[in-house]
């Protein structure tokens, strides 16, 4: 169980070794999330159309260790972009992955880049 969680570690923009093209803007729902498969990892990608911003994080919720976060509702808490897990509504910051509602481990976040309508998520593996 634990080792599934260990598969996910935050990647900073400067650590990126590979920008994976995961689809086009049209493939992603506006103001909501969708899940991307990269190697064996499941990554939740969120398109905040209102802000014109993109975020990515592990799809795995650290609370009950289920692949569900991409199906959560998104929004902001005092300006910080966040996702609410669909299972128990725990909130996680999409800026740094911190849990905003309980003392849960932070989730891993990944940088997203959009060029010519194509969406890339940055990985170092």
């Amino acid at each position: 169980m634990q080792n599934v969680l260990d598969n996910y570690e935050s990647v900073m923009e400067e650590q990126v070794t590979y920008w994976y093209p995961c689809g086009y803007v049209d493939d992603f729902p506006e103001n909501a999330g969708a899940c991307v498969k990269y190697k064996h990892a499941q990554i939740a990608v969120f398109y905040f159309a209102r802000m014109g911003k993109w975020y990515a994080c592990q799809n795995l919720c650290p609370h009950k260790v289920e692949m569900v976060l991409s199906r959560g509702m998104i929004g902001d808490a005092t300006g910080i972009a966040k996702v609410a897990c669909p299972m128990h509504k725990h909130n996680f910051s999409l800026e740094d992955g911190a849990c905003l509602t309980a003392e849960l481990p932070a989730i891993a976040t990944y940088p997203v880049r959009v060029e010519n309508q194509q969406v890339f998520v940055g990985f170092n593996f």
């Binding site: 103001n31 909501a32 009950k64 289920e66 692949m67 199906r71 509702m73 669909p86 299972m87």
Partner: peptide
């Protein structure tokens, strides 16, 4: 307006323990 629905309504189904 799917993006503003609670996630269950967005998928028109009730999420269960294993997703």
């Amino acid at each position: 307006q799917p993006a503003i629905q609670d996630s269950n309504d967005r998928f028109l189904a009730n999420i269960q323990r294993n997703g």
